[in-house]
Amino acid sequence: MDKFKEKLASLREEVIAAETRASTAETEVKRLHDEQTQKDHEITSLKNKLSLVENDLEKAETRIAEAKLNLDEGETSKTVGEGLARKVSLLEAELDSAERNLRETTEKLRQMDIKAEHFERKVQQLENDRDTYERKVEDLTTKYNGIKLELDETLKSLEDL
């Protein structure tokens, strides 16, 4: 019986050791399970963060592409703007030249108007002088004709004598 008791005591010690090991193993399993759950949550969180970062990356790449497009458009607009600025400068120079020509032409026209008025007065004066001389010529012609008639009559009367 002693052997039996020893065997029973040995089995009890083994059972206690097994229970202790089982309890330790269960605790370890629970800890590992909790750790796995925590790691799963961490993985899910990291996946969400990765998804957000990928979305941000896509948005950033889209903005970069838009910025490059805008830069190209800006350079095109700048080139067009510079061309238009040159054209405006040329048009302003042409406008200045046209205004200068207009002033010169206006001044010449004013001078021509003054000369035309002067010549019109001169023409009017000459026409008045002509009219005066024509009246004098008519008067003298009339006097001449009268004197000629008188002379003719006098000559005729002298011949008759």
Rank of each mutant, 00 (worst) to 15 (best):
residue 26 E to M: 07
residue 120 E to N: 13
residue 64 I to A: 15
residue 144 Y to F: 15
residue 45 S to P: 00
residue 71 L to N: 06
residue 115 K to H: 06
residue 50 L to F: 06
residue 84 L to H: 11
residue 71 L to F: 07
residue 109 L to E: 05
residue 74 G to W: 00
residue 6 E to K: 13
residue 8 L to V: 14
residue 130 R to Y: 08
residue 2 D to P: 02
residue 23 S to Q: 10
residue 154 T to I: 08
residue 30 K to R: 15
residue 72 D to C: 03
residue 4 F to G: 07
residue 19 E to F: 03
residue 70 N to F: 05
residue 4 F to E: 13
residue 91 L to T: 06
residue 115 K to T: 06
residue 76 T to Q: 12
residue 88 V to N: 05
residue 80 V to L: 11
residue 27 T to K: 14
residue 61 E to T: 09
residue 103 R to G: 04
residue 114 I to C: 02
residue 100 R to N: 14
residue 66 E to H: 06
residue 64 I to R: 14
residue 88 V to W: 00
residue 160 D to K: 07
residue 57 L to C: 04
residue 89 S to F: 01
residue 93 A to T: 12
residue 159 E to W: 01
residue 80 V to F: 03
residue 119 F to D: 06
residue 159 E to I: 03
residue 13 E to L: 09
residue 111 Q to A: 06
residue 58 E to F: 05
residue 71 L to V: 11
residue 154 T to A: 15
residue 8 L to R: 04
residue 99 E to W: 00
residue 121 R to C: 05
residue 155 L to K: 14
residue 131 D to S: 11
residue 139 D to S: 09
residue 6 E to I: 05
residue 148 K to S: 09
residue 56 D to Q: 13
residue 64 I to T: 11
residue 53 V to H: 09
residue 32 L to E: 08
residue 11 L to V: 04
residue 30 K to T: 14
residue 131 D to L: 08
residue 118 H to F: 06
residue 144 Y to A: 15
residue 40 D to L: 11
residue 102 L to S: 07
residue 102 L to G: 05
residue 12 R to I: 07
residue 142 T to S: 11
residue 8 L to E: 12
residue 90 L to S: 10
residue 47 K to F: 03
residue 69 L to D: 10
residue 151 L to W: 02
residue 79 T to N: 11
residue 116 A to W: 00
residue 95 L to E: 05
residue 136 K to M: 03
residue 142 T to M: 06
residue 56 D to H: 09
residue 130 R to G: 01
residue 66 E to G: 02
residue 45 S to C: 05
residue 27 T to D: 12
residue 6 E to T: 10
residue 119 F to H: 08
residue 12 R to L: 09
residue 38 Q to E: 12
residue 63 R to I: 07
residue 11 L to A: 09
residue 158 L to W: 04
residue 161 L to Y: 03
residue 16 I to M: 06
residue 136 K to R: 13
residue 107 E to I: 01
residue 132 T to Q: 10
residue 31 R to D: 08
residue 146 G to T: 08
residue 16 I to T: 12
residue 145 N to F: 02
residue 87 K to H: 10
residue 90 L to H: 03
residue 12 R to E: 15
residue 111 Q to W: 00
residue 149 L to N: 14
residue 53 V to W: 03
residue 59 K to P: 00
residue 99 E to G: 02
residue 146 G to M: 05
residue 33 H to F: 03
residue 30 K to E: 14
residue 58 E to I: 09
residue 7 K to R: 10
